[in-house]
Computed example of a mutant assay.
Amino acid sequence: MDVGPEIARRVFVLQLTTGEHVMADERFFLVRTDGCAVSNAGWTALELDVMAEHRWWSRAELAETTEPVFPETLLDMLTAATR
């Protein structure tokens, strides 16, 4: 798997399911893979509580899905990074 450079970053206040507000610092990387499994083995209890699903997506899958994907601008980030 090739983890490339950081392509985008978001810093914002996020309200947790407990009502607590935290500063979120999200960093996004372009990753090329041939189908590696994704694991939640290192997740915290909070991450397990708030994350419904995670997996690798192709650009075509992101463009076609009707499922909610976060961040909502993920495809735009990818497009800007690969111009």
Rank of each mutant, 00 (worst) to 15 (best):
D49A: 12
E26I: 06
L46R: 05
L48A: 12
T17Q: 13
V11N: 07
E6R: 14
R55T: 10
M23P: 00
N40Y: 00
G4K: 13
A63I: 03
M1H: 08
T65W: 03
T82E: 13
C36T: 14
R10G: 00
V69A: 09
R59Y: 03
V38A: 13
V38E: 06
T17R: 14
R9E: 12
T82R: 08
E72Q: 15
D2Q: 15
F12V: 00
V11L: 03
A60Q: 15
M51R: 14
F28T: 01
R9D: 03
W56D: 03
R59C: 00
H21G: 01
D34E: 07
A45K: 06
A37W: 08
F28D: 01
W56C: 10
S58T: 15
L75W: 05
R55L: 11
P71S: 08
T65E: 06
L46Y: 12
V50L: 12
T18L: 07
D76M: 10
E61W: 08
F70C: 10
E20S: 02
T33L: 05
W57Q: 04
R9H: 13
P71K: 03
V22P: 04
E72L: 14
A41M: 03
Q15M: 11
D2L: 14
G4T: 06
M77L: 08
D34I: 07
L62A: 06
F12E: 06
L78D: 02
L14R: 13
A81E: 02
L48M: 08
A24Q: 05
M1Q: 01
P68R: 13
T18I: 06
P5M: 00
D49L: 05
E20M: 07
C36N: 15
M23A: 10
M1N: 00
P71V: 03
M23Q: 11
P5I: 01
L74I: 14
F29T: 06
L46D: 04
A8N: 06
V3N: 00
S58G: 09
L14I: 00
G4W: 09
